[in-house]
Every structure is written in structure tokens, then in C-alpha cells.
Design a protein around this nucleic acid. Structure first.
Length: 817
RNA sequence: GCGGACGUGGCGGAAUUGGCAGACGCGCAAGAUUUAGGAUCUUGUCCUGAAAGGGGUGGGAGUUCAACUCUCCCCGUCCGCACCA
């Protein structure tokens, strides 16, 4: 038999008729929720995308064969900017474009034999989905977790539009190359910072997540504990709040630096002789977007504010500077500067001739730094710190914090890098934010019964950069839900990460009209047992989903605190050393492969090419190898059907023993590979060995038909999660009426693994010299004697007695001379 | 700069977790079969050497009977974060 694409179609039809992947949600016994990150349907899929779905399908099918009740759903992250850009460029409606892509991708997935429960398909741009995205917004709003504030956006003055970060190329607008400015706009935020501590703490629950993803999330949350304290300003009623994690260095604080956005700057500099100069400096700094400000080459600059602050511990007056390297977004926008123990402060202090006082002594006896490299930033023993001298940093931090608290100067404080989630998008193709602005009542949420706020479809797409919603009267002008007076609808739409932060819940109750999901079902089926996707979502998508999940739990809608039990992040497939992209022209399109080699060949190669969590280079020759292997394996079934059985001996012959042992060790190892971290590549290589062994044994000796048949059957059962089509075909040829996926995953039998004779390595001084066949029942002394009597060993030892002999059972004998 | 991962043949990668380095596949070479093949089947393939032997997992040290695996230093690649006070 030859494997070919015709076989694919036959079994794809069969599975869909059989409803192989239709999950029974009401039956929670041995449930297994296998979730693959749903795609953004921007164009057809290439082999890089395919890896994700092939892995997911292999897992789902494997679990199915283990008798699990498997749920493997699929959907579409269907809102987003690219659709809108396409609309403007090619005059296609985003909806039309998106649905067309969905149709195409669905065909692709089907042609690869990826099995999904399509009855649960979810599309985020459908009103029956985004109704509930809006509902979630309203719940957050009710709890005060959705709020509006001014925030800076990237603004192109020529296009009169907001730009997403990816639309800013080298600080310029991607469309017209105008330099991008900062502009403040009223924007909607989700208060994810309220959950910062829990998002951090619960990372410890995620034992089955890749370590690096947890680390990335941890860094992103960026918790740091320190002290927030007041610096009084001389000749002023102002106080400057500073946050520091190193309060033990406060005696070395020789100046204070403020961000250009610091709220009270105007007051601070009102009497400065060079006020104009200062203002122009501030304006200069502010005009630069944050992305420019954080460039590596960015030079530290500042200006003296003309005012002095009082160091609360020393009582000394220290100058207040305004500096371009202080971030308003973190801490208080003001810091105390300790040039002796902070490189950045040192750089600044040397540039502007500010004082440098050493207050921490390193173990190796540091001195006041002369160059940035000499700045000691570690912990140590406090010096020049009055009554705190001699304490180590750790104690110092505690004692000074206690002292400050007592004196009312400052208090312990925890800070996070995590910032609230900006969800407003000044875009058309997204879920409308369900808010109405009334002239009288102000900001009014759309009542739940009026959801969804439908996104109007009859709109024009012009390259103005403005949301088309601004020109739809019917959408824009509404009456206030409270007072029925004149009101205006919010025209911003939601970030697509909001859509994707809860889709895994909707799959459970995809068709519910009255609720976003049925709590009972969701609680039975979640958390997701296995989540699979790209590492590019390690931070945002996974953080937002965790946040929304926790929020819904707080509302009592769900009972679990983390949505994804186990996470697997697959590596990229690269071609010619680079990520596949149309512009580079290195995209490997699957259609051609499917047509020539069939789906199983592509699937097998994708899984065989390397460890799935690592990046891998696509090689057409590797694909050919998999094709050859499948044919080589498929040939076994022909050989079997033509096999003339001779009257078998009563006892198993050597060849039969070897094949039986190979069958069962393969079952054992493949199962272990799949139970581990999805080591598909080694699992497949082991099946290849079994095929090789079977061919070899048939050529060299006689097998009774039952063992031959068991070998063939095992090969294709073990391959079934990877190459489902050919496996079904062989399964049918072997006379089975039922799908191979209704068959139980095989169990290995210990009795066949047993080996009478094994070959061990004989080493002298740790170096392999000889091999020795031993019987497993031999005593250790017998083996040692045999090893010592080997010619080569004797030659090396001469007549001397070995100093020591180490024996590791069934592995090696190491003779120490 | 900080944090993390990694470094094994011509290539993709294995190595039971400290126990015979290079499984499996690709590529290559020789042979067989074939009208022919980019099909199939044998055999070989870490380097060096005619062989015996010697060397070998980025480099250097160390622990150990034994190190790809553990420890320290250095070099390199990739990823993430990046003036976070």
C-alpha cells in the first residue's frame, strides 16, 4: 500500500461523520480540555502556524486514545487593526475580509486533519460574542475597575490620528513619515494593578508552566519594596515624595531629581532666575516620546530648579534638579539620588558637578568612586551614616524605615512596574465600549439589557486615520439611558486582548444567548488542562486572561483562580535562518506539501524536526525523509497480507523475542515521551526503530504471523496521534471496524522487556576498552572475573591487581588500575 | 546593563538524569536492482590513523572510579526586560 493524499480525504470525512471530536460537556468524568491559542485570521497559514495546530491535535488525539473525554475547540480572534488597514487599502469591508480569511484557514486546518469540535466555534467579531465582551467591561465598570483617565498616545499631526506602537517606525508615522508626537487623550483603563499582588503570588500555582514564562510575568509585574518619604523644600510649603528601595543609602543622597512631568514643577520654579530656560528644557524633554527617551544612546541631561530640598536624615540642603532620565510612570516621578551607589546618578552627578558621598562599604573595601565602573551598587556596611554606621544594609533599611515612620517622614511602600491596562482604541474594527456620555449625567454605562452595542457595518473607509464611527450619526447620537436627554456614544473600541482574555470560557457555552457562559459547566471543565501557543503571548495575553479569570472568580461566576493548568509554548519554524514572512519571501506554504506528500507527511515532519519548544529550521529534505518512512512503514501491511505463515515452533525463536521486546519497549518509551514534555521527535524516532527492527527481523528470520501483526498494529497505533490518516487506513486493513481513536492506547507488558543477555561496556580507568555479553543472572564476582580475563584488559593491567572495580548493573564495569 | 536559555558530526538532533557520546532522520560514499530515476534495498559514514592506537560534546580549570551532564572562570549565540529609583 502507498500512502497518498486520497487517504486523507476519506478519513477526514469519516471523523466528521463519526463526530470524533464532539465533546460531551455534561460528562465531566476524565475530561481533558486541550486548547490551542486561536489565530488572528489575517491570511492563510504557513507551516510555522501549522506547528501549533499539529501539536495541539497530536495531544488531543493521544488523550482521546487514552479514553479521555476530550474538548478541543477552535475560534477566531477576529477583531483588529490589519483588517481595517486592508479595508482602506483594498476597499473591502473588514468583516468581509476577516470572514473570507476564516473560511480559507478553516479549509486548511481541515485538509491537515486537525480535529476540532466545530460546533463550539467562537468568532470574536460576531455580536453574540462581543456582547459578552461588553458585558465584562460593564462588570469591571461596576466594580470601579474600568475607569477613564488622560493618557499619552502616539499622535500623528498630519494624519490627525492615534498610532499604535507598531505603526511608529523610528519615531515616525508609518504612513506619512511625520515625526510622532505625544498627545493626551481621555482613555479607558482596566485596573489590573489591583490584582498585581495576586497575579504575582499565584504564579507559584503554575507549576506546569514553563519557568521562563513565569519569570517574564514576574519581571513584568515588577514588585519592589522600599520606602516612600518626604523631602521638604526649602523656602516653600512643597514636599517632594520619593520612593527608594535603598533607604540605607539615604545619608549619601546629595540631590533630588524630578521627572519633566512632575506635577508641581511650575510652583517649584516660579521664582527661578532662569525660569524660561528651565521651561524650555522641560518642554524639550516632554516632546520626546517615551520610546525615544529610553533609547540606549539617550544622554542624561538635566537642569537645576533653583530650589533646595532637605535631606530628612542629614538635615543638609541638597539641590533639586529636573532630569530627563526620571520616569513619571514609575514611583512618584521623583527620586533621591545617591551618586556613590547608583551608576545613573553617578553619571549625572559627575556631569553637573554634584556631591558624591560614600555610605556603603563593600566587603572588599570600596572607596568613593572615580569612574562609573567603581560605583558600588551592592549591599554592604553603612558608613558616614551617623548612628546607623556599622549596620549592614539589610538591618539599616529596617532601622531607618522604623525611624522615619516614628518621625512621620516616610513609610514602607511596595511599588509595581505593572501599569493599568489601556483598552481604548481609536479604531473601528473592535468591540464598541458600552458607554454613553450625557450632557447632564456625564459618563453613563449602557444598561446590560441593551447589549450588544452593535458595531455599525455600513461605514466608509477613508485613509483619514480617523475611526469611521465618528461619521455615523445613528451610532454617535443617542439618548441618555438615565435621563433620555441628548447624549453621545463612546466611539473608541476595545483592545483585542480584551476579546481574547475570556474566549476559553465561551467555548464551553458557545451558543448561550442569556449568559456569557454557564458557570456550572465552566467550573466542571476548567481550568484548561493543556494550553498550547506561541511564547510571544507569554506576557500580555496570558496576564490579561489571568486577570479577567480572577475578576470573574471574585464576582462568583467561576470557582478556579487560574485558567490554564498546564502551558506549552512551541518554538518558531524558521526558513533560511529567518522567521517566515511574505516580505522576505521565505514562506513555506503547506498546500503544495499536502498535495504532493499528504497531510500525514507534513504533520510527521513538523513533529519530528526537533524539540517542539525550540525553534527549528525547515528543510525540504527532512520532509522527504518522513515521506519515505511512512511508505516504508506502510509496506509492512502489504508484506503482512501476503505473509505465508509456516507452522510456528512452540517456543519463541530469537527473532520473535527481539521483535516482541522492541514492540513493548517502544510502547513504553513513546508513552513516556508523550507524558513528559511532548517529546514528539524522540517518540517518532523510536517508532522508526521499531519499523526498522521489524523489517530487519523479517529479512533475517521467521516470525509467526501474530507477532508480525502485532508489530504492524503497534507501529500505527503509536503513530496515530501524529499520522492519523494512514493509521486509520491500516487499522481498517487489519480488520478493525472502529476508529483507531476509539481504541485504547497500548500498554506495554513487562514480561517482554526482560532480557536474559545484555551487553555491557568494560572500561579501564573510565575508558571503554571492550564489550562483554553477560547473563543477567550472573553474580557480580563472575562478571568481574570475566571482565578481568579479557585480553585487552589483561594487556593494560599487565600483572598488577586492579585498585578498584566499579560495577553498575547491566551497564558498565569500570576497572581502576 | 540586568534576567533567562543554550553551545554535541557536514546538517536537524539523541543520550535512561553522573554510567558504552553521536540513537533516529537528512546529507554523503560504495554496491545491488531497475529502461531510467530525485524509487527501493544492502553496507559504510565523529576526527585522525594502513592498523594497533590516539583524540573528541565552545575554551580553561575543578570534583569523581566515571562528566555532554555537577562546580568555578572565560568566549559565543539566541530570547526577554531595559534609565523601574
Amino acid at each position: 500500500m502507498q500512502y497518498s493524499k486520497e487517504i486523507d480525504k476519506k478519513w477526514q470525512k469519516f471523523w466528521s461523520k463519526e463526530k470524533l471530536f464532539a465533546a460531551d460537556i455534561k460528562e465531566k468524568k476524565s475530561k481533558y480540555y486541550c486548547l490551542v491559542m486561536f489565530p488572528y485570521p489575517s491570511s492563510e497559514l504557513h507551516v510555522g502556524h501549522a506547528r501549533n495546530y499539529v501539536i495541539g491535535d497530536a495531544v488531543a488525539r493521544y488523550k482521546l486514545m487514552q479514553g479521555h473525554n476530550v474538548l478541543s475547540p477552535m475560534g477566531w480572534d477576529a477583531f483588529g487593526l490589519p483588517a481595517e488597514n486592508q479595508a482602506i487599502k483594498h476597499k473591502v469591508h473588514p468583516k468581509e475580509w476577516t470572514l473570507k480569511n476564516i473560511k480559507r484557514i478553516k479549509e486548511q486546518l481541515d485538509s491537515w486533519g486537525i480535529g476540532y469540535d466545530w460546533a463550539r466555534e467562537v468568532t470574536t467579531c460576531h455580536p453574540n460574542y462581543y456582547k459578552w465582551t461588553q458585558w465584562i467591561f460593564l462588570q469591571l465598570y461596576k466594580k470601579g475597575l474600568a475607569y477613564r483617565k488622560e493618557a499619552a498616545v502616539n499622535w500623528c499631526s498630519s494624519c490627525k490620528t492615534v498610532l499604535a506602537n507598531e505603526q511608529v517606525i523610528n519615531g515616525e508615522c508609518e504612513r506619512c513619515s511625520t515625526e510622532v508626537e505625544q498627545k493626551k487623550l481621555e482613555q479607558w483603563f482596566f485596573k489590573i494593578t489591583d490584582y498585581a499582588d495576586r497575579l504575582l503570588e499565584d504564579l507559584t500555582l503554575l507549576e506546569e508552566w514553563p519557568e521562563r514564562v513565569c519569570t517574564m510575568q514576574k519581571n513584568w509585574i515588577g514588585k519592589s519594596s522600599g520606602v516612600e518619604m518626604d523631602f521638604e523644600v526649602q523656602d516653600s510649603s512643597l514636599k517632594i515624595k520619593c520612593f527608594t528601595t535603598r533607604v540605607d543609602t539615604i545619608f549619601g543622597a546629595t540631590f533630588v531629581a524630578l521627572s519633566a512631568e512632575y506635577p508641581h514643577l511650575e510652583e517649584l520654579i516660579k521664582d527661578a532666575p532662569n525660569k524660561d530656560e528651565i521651561i524650555s528644557f522641560i518642554d524639550k524633554v516632554k516632546s520626546k516620546s517615551v520610546s525615544v527617551r529610553t533609547l540606549e544612546t539617550f544622554e542624561k541631561e538635566g537642569i537645576f530648579s533653583s530650589k533646595y530640598a532637605i535631606n530628612p536624615m542629614t538635615g543638609e540642603k541638597i539641590p533639586i534638579w529636573i532630569a530627563n532620565y526620571i520616569l513619571m510612570e514609575y514611583g512618584t516621578g521623583a527620586i533621591m539620588c545617591v551618586p556613590a551607589h547608583d551608576k545613573r546618578d553617578f553619571e549625572f552627578a559627575t556631569k553637573y558637578n554634584l556631591g558624591i558621598t560614600e555610605v556603603i562599604q563593600s566587603a572588599s573595601g570600596s572607596r568613593t568612586p572615580q569612574t562609573p565602573d567603581e560605583v558600588y551598587e551592592g549591599e554592604g556596611v553603612m558608613v558616614n551614616s551617623k548612628e546607623f554606621n556599622g549596620l549592614n544594609s539589610e538591618e539599616g533599611k529596617e532601622k531607618i524605615a522604623a525611624y522615619m515612620k516614628k518621625k512621620g517622614i516616610g513609610e514602607k511602600k511596595v511599588n509595581f512596574k505593572l501599569r493599568d491596562w489601556l483598552i481604548s482604541r481609536q479604531r473601528y474594527w473592535g468591540a464598541p465600549i458600552p458607554i454613553i456620555y450625557c450632557n447632564k449625567c456625564g459618563e453613563v454605562p449602557v444598561p446590560e439589557k441593551n447589549l450588544p452595542v452593535i458595531l455599525p457595518e455600513a461605514v466608509k473607509f477613508l485613509p483619514t486615520g480617523q475611526s469611521p464611527l465618528l461619521h455615523i450619526d445613528k451610532f454617535l447620537n443617542v439618548s441618555c439611558p438615565k435621563c433620555k436627554g441628548k447624549a453621545r456614544r463612546e466611539t473608541d473600541t476595545m483592545d483585542t486582548f480584551v476579546d481574547s482574555s475570556w474566549y476559553y470560557l465561551r467555548y464551553i457555552s458557545a451558543h448561550q444567548k442569556k449568559v456569557p457562559f454557564v458557570g456550572k459547566d465552566v467550573n466542571n471543565w476548567l481550568p484548561v488542562d493543556q494550553y498550547i501557543g506561541g511564547v510571544e503571548h507569554a506576557i500580555l495575553h496570558l496576564m490579561y486572561s489571568r486577570f479577567i479569570n480572577k475578576f470573574l472568580k471574585d464576582l462568583g461566576w467561576i470557582s478556579f483562580s487560574e485558567p490554564f493548568q498546564r502551558l506549552f509554548t512551541q518554538g518558531m519554524i524558521v526558513k533560511d535562518g529567518a522567521k517566515m514572512s511574505k516580505s522576505k519571501g521565505n514562506v513555506v506554504a503547506p498546500d503544495y506539501i499536502i498535495d504532493k506528500y499528504g497531510a500525514d507527511t507534513m504533520r510527521l515532519y513538523i513533529l519530528f524536526m526537533g524539540p517542539p519548544q525550540k525553534d527549528a529550521e525547515w528543510q525540504d529534505e527532512g520532509l522527504q525523509g518522513c515521506w519515505r518512512f511512512i511508505q516504508r512503514a506502510a509496506r509492512l501491511i502489504d508484506m503482512l497480507s501476503e505473509y505465508k505463515e509456516e507452522q510456528p515452533e512452540k517456543e519463541l525463536n530469537e527473532h520473535e523475542k527481539i521483535v516482541l521486546r522492541k514492540i513493548h519497549s517502544t510502547i513504553k518509551e513513546v508513552t513516556a515521551d508523550l507524558e513528559g514534555n511532548f517529546q514528539f521527535n524522540t517518540a517518532i524516532s523510536r517508532v522508526m526503530e521499531l519499523v526498522n527492527q521489524t523489517h530487519k527481523s523479517l529479512a533475517e528470520g521467521i516470525l509467526r504471523k501474530s507477532i508480525f501483526k502485532e508489530a504492524v498494529s503497534t507501529v500505527f497505533v503509536l503513530l496515530a496521534p501524529f499520522t492519523p490518516h494512514i493509521s486509520e487506513e491500516v487499522n481498517a486493513l487489519l480488520g478493525n471496524k472502529q476508529s483507531i481513536f476509539r481504541k485504547k492506547w497500548p500498554q506495554f507488558k513487562e514480561q517482554y522487556l526482560h532480557q536474559e543477555e545484555v551487553e555491557i561496556g568494560v572500561l579501564v580507568n573510565g575508558k571503554l576498552r571492550e564489550k562483554l555479553k553477560i547473563n543477567v543472572n550472573w553474580e557480580r564476582s563472575e562478571i568481574e572475573t570475566k571482565a578481568l580475563s579479557l585480553e585487552k584488559v589483561k594487556n593494560i593491567l599487565k600483572d598488577k591487581k586492579p585498585k578498584n572495580v566499579v560495577y553498575i548493573p547491566k551497564r558498565i564495569v569500570n576497572i581502576v588500575a
